[in-house]
Computed example of a mutant assay.
Amino acid sequence: MAKHLFLTALLLGSSLANAAQSSPATNNQTDADEGFTAPLQSLTFIPGLDNFVAASNSAMDVYDPLETWNRGVYQFNYRLDQWVMLPAVRGYTYVTPKFARTGVSNFFSNLGDLPSLGNSLLQLKGERAMRTTARLLFNTILGVAGIWDPATAMGLPKEREDFGQTLGYYGVPAGAYLVLPVYGPSNLRDTSGLVVDTLGEQSANFLNVAEESKRHFEISLLRAIDTRYTTPYRYGQLNTPFEYSRVRYLYTEVRKLQIAE
Protein backbone atom coordinates (compact mmCIF):
# COMPACT_ATOMS: atom_id res chain seq x y z
CA MET A 1 0.00 0.00 0.00
CA ALA A 2 2.84 2.37 0.82
CA LYS A 3 4.29 1.71 -2.62
CA HIS A 4 0.98 2.58 -4.30
CA LEU A 5 0.76 5.74 -2.20
CA PHE A 6 4.24 6.80 -3.22
CA LEU A 7 3.56 6.19 -6.93
CA THR A 8 0.27 8.11 -6.75
CA ALA A 9 1.99 11.03 -5.08
CA LEU A 10 4.73 11.05 -7.71
CA LEU A 11 2.18 11.09 -10.54
CA LEU A 12 0.26 13.91 -8.90
CA GLY A 13 3.44 15.87 -8.30
CA SER A 14 4.54 15.43 -11.91
CA SER A 15 1.19 16.76 -13.14
CA LEU A 16 1.50 19.77 -10.87
CA ALA A 17 5.03 20.46 -12.03
CA ASN A 18 3.90 20.43 -15.67
CA ALA A 19 0.99 22.69 -14.86
CA ALA A 20 3.29 25.15 -13.12
CA GLN A 21 5.10 25.77 -16.41
CA SER A 22 1.87 27.04 -17.96
CA SER A 23 0.42 28.99 -15.04
CA PRO A 24 1.95 31.71 -12.83
CA ALA A 25 1.71 31.54 -9.03
CA THR A 26 -0.66 33.89 -7.23
CA ASN A 27 0.83 33.31 -3.80
CA ASN A 28 3.53 35.76 -2.70
CA GLN A 29 5.41 33.14 -0.65
CA THR A 30 7.66 31.46 -3.21
CA ASP A 31 11.03 29.82 -3.22
CA ALA A 32 13.37 29.52 -6.16
CA ASP A 33 14.41 26.01 -5.20
CA GLU A 34 11.13 24.37 -4.29
CA GLY A 35 8.30 26.38 -5.86
CA PHE A 36 5.06 27.80 -4.61
CA THR A 37 3.31 27.39 -1.28
CA ALA A 38 -0.12 26.45 -2.70
CA PRO A 39 0.24 25.86 -6.46
CA LEU A 40 -3.21 24.32 -6.88
CA GLN A 41 -4.84 27.66 -6.13
CA SER A 42 -3.72 29.03 -9.50
CA LEU A 43 -4.81 26.13 -11.75
CA THR A 44 -7.61 27.96 -13.55
CA PHE A 45 -6.41 27.68 -17.14
CA ILE A 46 -8.36 24.47 -17.91
CA PRO A 47 -12.16 24.97 -17.92
CA GLY A 48 -14.31 22.51 -16.01
CA LEU A 49 -11.67 21.38 -13.53
CA ASP A 50 -12.76 23.49 -10.58
CA ASN A 51 -14.11 20.51 -8.65
CA PHE A 52 -10.97 18.48 -9.35
CA VAL A 53 -8.72 21.32 -8.21
CA ALA A 54 -10.73 21.82 -5.02
CA ALA A 55 -10.65 18.09 -4.24
CA SER A 56 -6.92 17.83 -4.97
CA ASN A 57 -6.17 20.85 -2.82
CA SER A 58 -8.10 19.31 0.06
CA ALA A 59 -6.44 15.90 -0.38
CA MET A 60 -2.94 17.38 -0.26
CA ASP A 61 -3.70 19.65 2.68
CA VAL A 62 -1.45 19.24 5.73
CA TYR A 63 -1.74 21.38 8.85
CA ASP A 64 1.34 23.58 8.54
CA PRO A 65 0.92 26.89 10.44
CA LEU A 66 4.72 27.23 10.70
CA GLU A 67 5.26 26.98 6.95
CA THR A 68 7.48 30.05 6.65
CA TRP A 69 9.79 28.72 9.37
CA ASN A 70 9.61 25.18 8.01
CA ARG A 71 10.61 26.24 4.51
CA GLY A 72 13.57 28.13 5.91
CA VAL A 73 14.71 25.07 7.85
CA TYR A 74 14.11 22.92 4.78
CA GLN A 75 16.48 25.16 2.82
CA PHE A 76 19.02 25.04 5.65
CA ASN A 77 18.88 21.22 5.67
CA TYR A 78 19.25 21.19 1.89
CA ARG A 79 22.41 23.32 2.04
CA LEU A 80 23.80 21.35 4.98
CA ASP A 81 23.22 18.14 3.08
CA GLN A 82 24.91 19.40 -0.08
CA TRP A 83 27.88 21.09 1.59
CA VAL A 84 28.52 18.89 4.64
CA MET A 85 26.66 15.60 4.89
CA LEU A 86 26.97 14.26 1.35
CA PRO A 87 30.68 15.16 1.06
CA ALA A 88 31.21 13.39 4.41
CA VAL A 89 29.33 10.34 3.11
CA ARG A 90 31.40 10.31 -0.09
CA GLY A 91 34.60 10.49 1.93
CA TYR A 92 33.38 7.78 4.28
CA THR A 93 32.49 5.55 1.33
CA TYR A 94 35.85 6.18 -0.31
CA VAL A 95 38.02 5.28 2.68
CA THR A 96 35.88 2.56 4.29
CA PRO A 97 35.51 -0.92 2.72
CA LYS A 98 31.96 -2.05 2.04
CA PHE A 99 32.05 -4.89 4.59
CA ALA A 100 33.10 -2.41 7.29
CA ARG A 101 30.32 0.03 6.34
CA THR A 102 27.82 -2.83 6.52
CA GLY A 103 29.09 -3.79 9.96
CA VAL A 104 28.75 -0.19 11.20
CA SER A 105 25.21 0.05 9.84
CA ASN A 106 24.26 -3.27 11.43
CA PHE A 107 25.70 -2.20 14.77
CA PHE A 108 23.73 1.04 14.97
CA SER A 109 20.63 -0.69 13.60
CA ASN A 110 20.90 -3.20 16.44
CA LEU A 111 20.93 -0.33 18.94
CA GLY A 112 17.75 0.98 17.36
CA ASP A 113 15.97 -2.30 18.07
CA LEU A 114 15.95 -1.49 21.79
CA PRO A 115 13.51 1.48 21.58
CA SER A 116 11.53 -0.51 19.01
CA LEU A 117 11.12 -3.27 21.60
CA GLY A 118 10.02 -0.82 24.27
CA ASN A 119 7.46 0.82 22.01
CA SER A 120 6.11 -2.53 20.82
CA LEU A 121 5.47 -3.40 24.46
CA LEU A 122 3.82 -0.04 25.12
CA GLN A 123 1.51 -0.64 22.16
CA LEU A 124 0.70 -4.17 23.43
CA LYS A 125 2.05 -5.73 20.24
CA GLY A 126 3.14 -8.98 21.83
CA GLU A 127 4.21 -10.90 18.71
CA ARG A 128 6.20 -7.97 17.38
CA ALA A 129 7.87 -7.51 20.76
CA MET A 130 8.90 -11.18 20.82
CA ARG A 131 10.33 -10.97 17.30
CA THR A 132 12.29 -7.84 18.18
CA THR A 133 13.56 -9.49 21.36
CA ALA A 134 14.73 -12.46 19.32
CA ARG A 135 16.46 -10.10 16.88
CA LEU A 136 18.26 -8.37 19.72
CA LEU A 137 19.44 -11.64 21.24
CA PHE A 138 20.58 -13.24 17.97
CA ASN A 139 22.30 -10.15 16.60
CA THR A 140 23.90 -9.12 19.87
CA ILE A 141 25.21 -12.59 20.75
CA LEU A 142 25.66 -14.42 17.44
CA GLY A 143 26.23 -11.22 15.47
CA VAL A 144 28.95 -9.98 17.87
CA ALA A 145 27.20 -6.87 19.28
CA GLY A 146 25.22 -6.47 16.09
CA ILE A 147 28.07 -6.16 13.61
CA TRP A 148 26.45 -9.02 11.69
CA ASP A 149 22.74 -9.49 11.17
CA PRO A 150 21.95 -13.22 11.37
CA ALA A 151 18.39 -12.46 12.54
CA THR A 152 17.29 -11.23 9.12
CA ALA A 153 18.65 -14.38 7.49
CA MET A 154 16.68 -16.38 10.08
CA GLY A 155 13.40 -14.75 9.02
CA LEU A 156 13.29 -11.95 11.58
CA PRO A 157 13.31 -8.69 9.59
CA LYS A 158 13.69 -5.35 11.33
CA GLU A 159 10.41 -3.84 12.55
CA ARG A 160 10.61 -0.19 13.57
CA GLU A 161 8.51 1.32 16.33
CA ASP A 162 9.08 4.70 17.93
CA PHE A 163 7.38 6.71 20.65
CA GLY A 164 5.73 8.97 18.09
CA GLN A 165 3.96 5.88 16.76
CA THR A 166 3.08 4.89 20.32
CA LEU A 167 1.47 8.28 20.94
CA GLY A 168 -0.42 7.99 17.65
CA TYR A 169 -1.52 4.46 18.56
CA TYR A 170 -3.25 5.88 21.63
CA GLY A 171 -4.93 8.63 19.67
CA VAL A 172 -2.60 11.58 20.22
CA PRO A 173 -3.01 13.86 17.16
CA ALA A 174 -0.02 14.68 14.99
CA GLY A 175 -0.27 18.42 15.59
CA ALA A 176 1.43 20.94 13.36
CA TYR A 177 3.87 19.80 10.70
CA LEU A 178 7.44 20.65 11.66
CA VAL A 179 10.75 20.50 9.83
CA LEU A 180 13.57 19.90 12.30
CA PRO A 181 17.11 21.13 11.67
CA VAL A 182 19.25 18.20 10.44
CA TYR A 183 16.54 15.60 11.20
CA GLY A 184 14.06 16.82 8.58
CA PRO A 185 10.27 16.19 8.36
CA SER A 186 8.38 15.69 11.62
CA ASN A 187 5.42 17.06 13.56
CA LEU A 188 4.84 18.07 17.16
CA ARG A 189 3.86 14.56 18.24
CA ASP A 190 6.79 12.85 16.51
CA THR A 191 9.24 15.45 17.80
CA SER A 192 8.13 14.67 21.35
CA GLY A 193 8.53 10.99 20.57
CA LEU A 194 12.04 11.56 19.25
CA VAL A 195 13.03 13.24 22.52
CA VAL A 196 11.60 10.36 24.57
CA ASP A 197 13.29 7.69 22.42
CA THR A 198 16.63 9.50 22.64
CA LEU A 199 16.44 9.87 26.41
CA GLY A 200 15.33 6.26 26.77
CA GLU A 201 18.24 4.96 24.69
CA GLN A 202 20.70 7.02 26.71
CA SER A 203 19.22 5.78 29.98
CA ALA A 204 19.37 2.15 28.87
CA ASN A 205 23.02 2.59 27.81
CA PHE A 206 22.82 -0.61 25.77
CA LEU A 207 26.31 -2.05 25.13
CA ASN A 208 27.64 1.03 26.95
CA VAL A 209 27.36 3.05 23.72
CA ALA A 210 25.58 6.05 25.27
CA GLU A 211 28.22 6.42 27.96
CA GLU A 212 31.11 6.02 25.55
CA SER A 213 29.52 8.50 23.13
CA LYS A 214 29.77 11.19 25.81
CA ARG A 215 33.50 10.65 26.04
CA HIS A 216 34.12 9.98 22.36
CA PHE A 217 32.32 12.40 20.05
CA GLU A 218 33.51 10.43 17.05
CA ILE A 219 30.96 7.69 17.86
CA SER A 220 28.09 10.14 17.50
CA LEU A 221 29.69 11.57 14.37
CA LEU A 222 30.02 8.11 12.84
CA ARG A 223 26.40 7.36 13.67
CA ALA A 224 25.27 10.59 11.97
CA ILE A 225 27.28 9.78 8.85
CA ASP A 226 25.97 6.21 8.81
CA THR A 227 22.40 7.46 9.13
CA ARG A 228 22.87 9.68 6.09
CA TYR A 229 24.70 6.86 4.28
CA THR A 230 21.76 4.48 4.76
CA THR A 231 19.10 7.09 3.87
CA PRO A 232 18.48 6.94 0.10
CA TYR A 233 16.61 10.26 -0.19
CA ARG A 234 18.42 13.13 -1.92
CA TYR A 235 17.18 16.72 -1.98
CA GLY A 236 16.10 17.66 -5.50
CA GLN A 237 15.72 14.07 -6.70
CA LEU A 238 11.99 14.56 -7.21
CA ASN A 239 12.83 17.11 -9.91
CA THR A 240 9.84 19.33 -9.18
CA PRO A 241 9.29 22.86 -7.84
CA PHE A 242 6.77 21.36 -5.40
CA GLU A 243 9.24 19.22 -3.46
CA TYR A 244 8.49 20.75 -0.05
CA SER A 245 4.74 20.13 -0.41
CA ARG A 246 5.23 16.60 -1.68
CA VAL A 247 7.67 15.62 1.06
CA ARG A 248 5.31 17.10 3.66
CA TYR A 249 2.35 15.13 2.28
CA LEU A 250 4.26 11.86 1.89
CA TYR A 251 5.71 12.06 5.40
CA THR A 252 2.26 12.66 6.88
CA GLU A 253 0.67 9.77 5.00
CA VAL A 254 3.51 7.32 5.68
CA ARG A 255 3.28 8.05 9.41
CA LYS A 256 -0.45 7.30 9.31
CA LEU A 257 0.32 3.92 7.71
CA GLN A 258 3.04 3.15 10.24
CA ILE A 259 0.74 3.89 13.16
CA ALA A 260 -2.09 1.83 11.66
CA GLU A 261 -0.03 -1.32 10.92
Rank of each mutant, 00 (worst) to 15 (best):
residue 39 P to R: 03
residue 179 V to T: 12
residue 247 V to P: 01
residue 70 N to H: 06
residue 14 S to A: 09
residue 122 L to T: 10
residue 253 E to L: 07
residue 65 P to E: 00
residue 130 M to C: 11
residue 196 V to M: 03
residue 130 M to F: 07
residue 165 Q to I: 08
residue 19 A to G: 13
residue 241 P to C: 05
residue 117 L to S: 00
residue 129 A to E: 00
residue 145 A to R: 14
residue 74 Y to N: 09
residue 86 L to H: 05
residue 141 I to G: 02
residue 212 E to H: 11
residue 21 Q to L: 14
residue 13 G to F: 08
residue 185 P to F: 04
residue 47 P to I: 07
residue 117 L to V: 14
residue 159 E to F: 04
residue 5 L to I: 15
residue 62 V to E: 01
residue 210 A to T: 03
residue 151 A to P: 00
residue 220 S to L: 06
residue 197 D to R: 12
residue 88 A to F: 10
residue 45 F to M: 04
residue 207 L to E: 07
residue 137 L to W: 05
residue 162 D to W: 09
residue 205 N to M: 07
residue 43 L to T: 09
residue 198 T to H: 04
residue 79 R to K: 12
residue 223 R to I: 00
residue 210 A to M: 11
residue 158 K to S: 03
residue 118 G to T: 11
residue 39 P to K: 03
residue 53 V to W: 00
residue 14 S to F: 13
residue 75 Q to G: 12
residue 80 L to S: 09
residue 244 Y to H: 03
residue 99 F to I: 09
residue 36 F to S: 13
residue 167 L to R: 12
residue 139 N to M: 04
residue 54 A to N: 08
residue 212 E to A: 06
residue 230 T to I: 08
residue 75 Q to V: 11
residue 135 R to F: 01
residue 139 N to Q: 01
residue 179 V to F: 02
residue 74 Y to Q: 06
residue 199 L to C: 11
residue 243 E to S: 11
residue 12 L to Q: 15
residue 225 I to H: 02
residue 201 E to N: 10
residue 157 P to G: 09
residue 51 N to P: 02
residue 254 V to D: 06
residue 3 K to W: 10
residue 245 S to D: 11
residue 227 T to M: 03
residue 230 T to R: 05
residue 124 L to C: 11
residue 55 A to N: 04
residue 99 F to R: 13
residue 213 S to F: 12
residue 101 R to K: 12
residue 162 D to T: 10
residue 14 S to H: 09
residue 37 T to I: 08
residue 172 V to K: 08
residue 191 T to P: 00
residue 127 E to W: 14
residue 28 N to R: 13
residue 2 A to W: 14
residue 224 A to K: 04
residue 208 N to W: 09
residue 214 K to F: 15
residue 91 G to A: 12
residue 251 Y to H: 02
residue 197 D to Y: 07
residue 200 G to I: 05
residue 218 E to K: 09
residue 5 L to M: 10
residue 79 R to Y: 07
residue 170 Y to W: 12
residue 207 L to S: 05
residue 2 A to N: 15
residue 38 A to E: 05
residue 198 T to Y: 02
residue 25 A to V: 14
residue 143 G to T: 07
residue 126 G to L: 13
residue 130 M to A: 10
residue 93 T to R: 10
residue 7 L to V: 13
